[in-house]
């Protein structure tokens, strides 16, 4: 058993195409990649929102008011 479909290199390379592992599972692999990518956006956005909420609470209201007056 070989994950790329070749158990040895006793082949004519003119007849060889794809040599990556788990051929036939391209769609599930791409779906996993897309889930990772979209999951990243969702996680990052949520974390950013939470972070900004925390940072907003860190500010002293008087200082923020003064900063507004400075324009």
């Amino acid at each position: 058993m070989s994950t790329i479909g070749y158990e040895n290199w006793a082949v004519d390379l003119a007849d060889v195409g794809a040599i990556y592992p788990f051929q036939g599972f391209e769609l599930p692999m791409v779906i996993a990649g897309v889930v990772f990518w979209l999951g990243w956006h969702i996680t990052q956005a949520r974390r950013e929102t939470k972070h900004m909420e925390e940072v907003m609470k860190m500010g002293d209201p008087e200082k923020i008011a003064k900063m507004l007056e400075r324009y």
Binding site: I4, I19, Y20, P21, F22, E26, M29, V30, A32, G33, F36
Partner: peptide, 13 residues
């Protein structure tokens, strides 16, 4: 040298 790009992505993650 042999991975599919999605395997490289996920292993790299």
């Amino acid at each position: 040298d042999l991975y599919h790009p999605m395997q490289a992505l996920l292993i790299g993650a």
